[in-house]
């Protein structure tokens, strides 16, 4: 294979990796903040995709809005879902991991089935708002939607970093994630910070889903495989680490693309997971994870 195709493969990997990264961020942020492993994240991604894309695709009584508007609606509605989820997760976060898993996986099933009931089990394809023909530069062919996904994800992740590092609210969120007791002694409403964290995580998942919708196929089961890969990506980067989620997501996407391009597409999933296991054997805290995050 020539270098053009190699670059093309990498770009495809970065695209799907951006998707994993946005989902991995949801896992890691919520874990940091609440000590909760949220296995409903894949379903939240699916719900967020529907929340936005139905208005663009004209699923609801033929109502159609422009793509950017649909993107905003989906992000906002899913952020609200995140706030509601905080109330549901609050008692779960105090329980053992086993109950968290049961609770969040169960919630995922409820959401998936709810959407099957409302929209039917079979999905639909979404037309890209951008031209469907690939852009060709120096023999490298890339879909405009893929560039939109990569660019959009990069913008969102940069905004998140600035928000967390610079903003006072971001500092409060970090403080709340580090130590609930001290944060509340400092006057920070910890439950509200958790709600904000879930809102941001869900909003990012919605953005990921709506940006990727014209590339993937939209259906109520779309979140299960991607949810699992997002989780794997978060672990690969270092569970609970925000830069880790980004690095892990992109790396996982690229690994997948390269292994399907150069080895075999039928082994794609297996190979990426094998590499994840190898990395964890060498560095159990993940690539960026400083220390194992301990949560009570």
């Amino acid at each position: 294979m020539n270098s053009g195709i190699f670059i093309q493969t990498i770009i495809g990997g970065l695209g799907i990796g951006s998707l994993y990264a946005l989902i991995a961020l949801g896992y890691s942020m919520v874990y940091r903040s609440m000590g909760l492993v949220n296995f409903a994240q894949g379903s939240i991604y699916m719900v967020g995709t529907y929340f936005g894309i139905i208005w663009y695709a004209g699923i609801v009584v033929g109502l159609r809005v422009p793509y950017p508007v649909a993107l905003l609606i989906g992000i906002l509605l899913n952020a609200m879902l995140g706030v509601v989820l905080e109330r549901i997760f609050r008692p779960l976060a105090k329980l053992d991991l086993m109950f968290m898993l049961l609770g969040t996986i169960g919630l995922g099933f409820v959401l998936n089935n709810l959407f099957v009931i409302i929209f039917g089990a079979e999905g639909f394809a979404v037309k890209s708002p951008l031209p469907d023909t690939p852009i060709i530069v120096l023999g490298i062919r890339v879909l405009p939607q893929m560039l939109l996904l990569i660019g959009g994800a990069a913008a969102l992740m940069t905004a998140l970093q600035i928000f967390l590092k610079r903003g006072k609210l971001g500092v409060a969120m970090r403080a709340s994630a580090m130590d609930h007791d001290i944060a509340s002694a400092m006057g920070i409403p910890v439950n509200r910070m958790n709600a904000l964290t879930l809102a941001i995580g869900s909003a990012l998942a919605a953005a990921a889903g709506i940006l990727a919708a014209p590339i993937v196929y939209v259906n109520p089961a779309m979140g299960s495989a991607i949810g699992l890969k997002g989780f794997a990506a978060a672990i690969l980067g270092g569970f609970g680490s925000i830069p880790g989620a980004i690095v892990g997501g992109l790396l996982f996407g690229v690994l997948e693309a390269v292994s399907s391009g150069y080895i075999s597409s039928s082994y794609t999933r297996g190979i990426a997971f094998i590499i994840m296991v190898l990395v964890l054997m060498i560095k159990p805290t993940g690539i960026v994870g400083e220390t194992t995050v301990e949560k009570v």
Binding site: V171, A175, I188, L196
Partner: peptide, 25 residues
């Protein structure tokens, strides 16, 4: 002692000032 260990000294103190801020999202 329970400081926010991965934050700077300044950020630790800023966290305490936070709740006076009118800041909302």
């Amino acid at each position: 002692l329970r400081l926010f260990s991965s934050m700077t000294v300044l950020d630790n103190v800023l966290v305490g000032m936070g709740h006076h801020a009118k800041t909302g999202l």
